[in-house]
Structure formats: structure tokens, C-alpha cells
């Protein structure tokens, strides 16, 4: 351990970082990460990344909806049977409305919660924030990061490799 978390190459354009990412993949690096001020089309594919967030949405919505529907049925037909306006006790059409709303609520909250948890947020401190140039990652600069935990990581080789991609600059990220 030489105190280095990885190396960060800074680019001016989305196309440059996309080309650099593909080159790094071809060179066999796996501990890659790209940082950009907006979602760059094709980068996630270049990193071989896919998200399964939609499944969480689907299952949470299903569970939430089923729970509130059965709960209403239990209230009206079993736990506290009241004759309200002469309607049947298991008034399924009326139960649909809260069922629909709770389905949406459960699905939406689960989606947002899962998105933040999977992204490891909130995390207010991160070694990258110590790199002064990194503050432009949220504005107009694009970064390719190669982590020191990569099996092929050797500081001089990686530095030379990143330099060959014609970045604006290569920054050290310390631990």
C-alpha cells in the first residue's frame, strides 16, 4: 500500500471519457469508475453495468398493494363489521382506491430508498472530494478513475496508460 487509492484522469468532453473508458476496458482494467456532470449515454454499457432497480419497484408495489387490500377486507368483513349505507362488507370496488394509492406509494418509496442505498449514499466524505479538480465533476468536466484495488494496477503503468488517452491532467487520489 503506497497510500494511493487510484488515479483520476480529467477530460473536457463526454466523448473523450467514453472513448477512454472503452480503451481502459480493452486494456483489461476492471476497477473503473466514470464521473460526469450528466449521465453520459453508453458509459454504463462500456463499464458493463446494469441495474435491477425495476424489480424492487415491482415487488414493493405488489406487496404494498396486496397488504392494504387485504387489510381493508379484514377491517370491514372480519374485525369490525358495520352496515355502512347498506353496502356489502367486502366492498372490493371501494377498496381499490386506497389499494392503488398504497401500491404507488410503496413502489415509489422503495425505488428511491433502494437507489440511494445501492449507490452508497448518503456518504458525505469521500477521498475523491480531496482532489481539488474534482469539484468540476458536477459542472463541466469528465473523469475516469482507475482504482488501486485493480489486480493489474501498477502506478507507473496506469499513469502512462492514462497519459496516453490524452487527458487534460492526471490526478492522484490518496486514501
Amino acid at each position: 500500500m503506497n497510500g494511493l487509492r487510484g488515479l483520476l484522469a480529467e477530460f473536457a468532453g463526454a466523448d473523450d471519457v467514453l472513448a477512454a473508458t472503452r480503451a481502459a476496458r480493452r486494456a483489461g482494467y476492471v476497477a473503473l469508475e466514470v464521473f460526469s456532470p450528466y449521465p453520459v449515454e453508453g458509459v454504463a454499457e462500456a463499464l458493463g453495468f446494469r441495474t435491477r432497480l425495476a424489480w424492487i419497484t415491482f415487488v414493493a408495489g405488489l406487496l404494498g398493494g396486496a397488504a392494504i387490500f387485504l387489510f381493508q377486507g379484514w377491517v370491514h368483513a372480519i374485525d369490525w363489521h358495520l352496515d355502512i349505507g347498506g353496502r356489502r362488507s367486502f366492498a372490493a370496488p371501494a377498496f381499490i382506491v386506497p389499494t392503488f394509492e398504497i401500491t404507488i406509494l410503496a413502489a415509489a418509496l422503495a425505488t428511491v430508498f433502494a437507489m440511494f442505498v445501492k449507490n452508497g449514499l448518503p456518504r458525505l466524505h469521500h477521498p475523491l472530494f480531496a482532489v481539488p479538480a474534482f469539484e468540476r465533476a458536477s459542472q463541466d468536466r469528465f473523469f475516469l478513475f482507475i482504482g488501486a484495488d485493480d489486480p493489474r494496477f501498477a502506478e507507473s503503468t496506469v499513469r502512462a496508460f492514462l497519459g496516453s488517452l490524452a487527458p487534460l491532467e492526471v490526478h492522484d487520489v490518496s486514501r
Binding site: 469508475e33 466514470v34 453520459v40 453495468f49 432497480l53
Partner: peptide, 13 residues
Amino acid sequence: LGWRGSARHWERH
């Protein structure tokens, strides 16, 4: 929340 604009974060976002 410590948003860093990582490509994986963006994809999930």
C-alpha cells in the same frame, strides 16, 4: 448526500 456523479450512480438514478 455526497453525490459524485459516478456512472453507476447515474444509471441507477
